[in-house]
Simulated scan of single mutants.
Amino acid sequence: MSGFDLDLYLDRLGIDPVPVTAQGLARLQSAQIRRIPFEDIDPFLGIAPGVGSEQVTDKILHRGRGGYCFEQNRLFQDALQALGFDVTRRLARVRKGAAQGGARTHLLLICRIEGTDYLADAGFGGPTPLEPLPLRMDTPQEATNGSYILRDDPETGERVLFLRNLGEEFALYGFDDAHVSDSDIEAGNFLCTHWPQAPFPHHLMVKGYDGDTPLGLMDRQVNEAGEKRLLTSAEALHHALCVRLGLVLPDATVQAVWDRITTLENAP
């Protein structure tokens, strides 16, 4: 990407430039997931975030925000290309354990290194693998934060990513090799912010790290390393978002998020 501020990106991640290797890709993906929280604050407040390179760079690198998949993986793609990686985009259908997915509303990346394709994804949130996974089918693969496996689905023609836990497999999303244009991404972004069946306008969803501790929010519920509790005030929400996860948010934005959470909870 011409004009991408790689130094600013690496500064946000707290790392030096990485080599164009599988190890370099893994270091970059892990650092972005750990340092730039997944968050859907804009869609939750009825705002369609910009998903172009300049808009994403301004929001995440200049204004200290996070973002959801269309923003996170746009930033990740731009950084990878600036470093010299061979990267393409794919759209996925989120499954959340279901046999099939819905609309194509998740953006991911495929990175080719020395003839091997890797699933590279810094924008799924939740149980996303911290490191990229080689596109090897039916072979369990270990990431720092869990065990995963990719399987072909003959009914949909998709490769499906599963999280493995205690012998059970939970389908995360499925994707194919269809070309993805900027218009596809803009349409998916619009769908995620306006479609009544999309989760983002109805729920605050945040996932990040406080140091090495994973921290997630679903509305007012905090999940910290597997222990759950409820936030009881806008001040507590501010502490979780801005102090623990490091997001830069005006007080008015945090209050607006809290007000929307309580309004939806009290809706008939």
Rank of each mutant, 00 (worst) to 15 (best):
D86W: 06
D86V: 07
D86E: 12
V87K: 06
T88S: 11
T88G: 13
L91W: 06
A92L: 01
A92Q: 02
R93Y: 02
V94Y: 07
V94A: 14
V94N: 10
R95V: 12
R95M: 11
K96E: 15
K96N: 14
G97K: 07
G97F: 08
A99P: 04
G102V: 09
A103W: 09
H106T: 04
H106Q: 09
L108E: 00
L108P: 02
L109K: 06
L109S: 13
I110N: 13
I110Q: 14
G115W: 12
G115I: 09
G115F: 14
G115P: 09
T116A: 07
D117F: 03
Y118D: 03
A120P: 14
A120N: 03
A120K: 01
F124G: 00
F124L: 10
F124H: 04
G125C: 13
G125R: 14
G126I: 05
P127G: 09
T128C: 13
T128S: 15
L130F: 15
L130N: 08
L130A: 08
P132M: 08
L133R: 02
L133C: 02
L133D: 00
P134Y: 04
P134T: 04
R136S: 03
M137K: 06
M137S: 14
D138Q: 11
T139Q: 15
P140D: 10
Q141K: 07
A143D: 04
A143H: 03
N145F: 01
G146T: 01
S147Q: 12
Y148K: 00
R151I: 11
D153Y: 00
P154V: 11
P154G: 02
P154A: 01
P154C: 04
E155V: 10
T156C: 05
G157D: 10
G157F: 10
R159M: 06
R159I: 12
V160P: 02
V160Y: 04
L163W: 02
L163H: 14
L163T: 01
R164T: 02
L166D: 15
G167C: 00
E168C: 12
E169D: 08
F170E: 06
A171G: 04
Y173I: 04
Y173V: 01
F175P: 13
D176S: 12
D177I: 08
D177S: 11
A178H: 14
A178Q: 11
H179F: 05
V180S: 09
S181N: 10
S181V: 11
D182A: 09
D184N: 14
I185P: 00
E186A: 15
E186C: 05
G188R: 05
G188M: 02
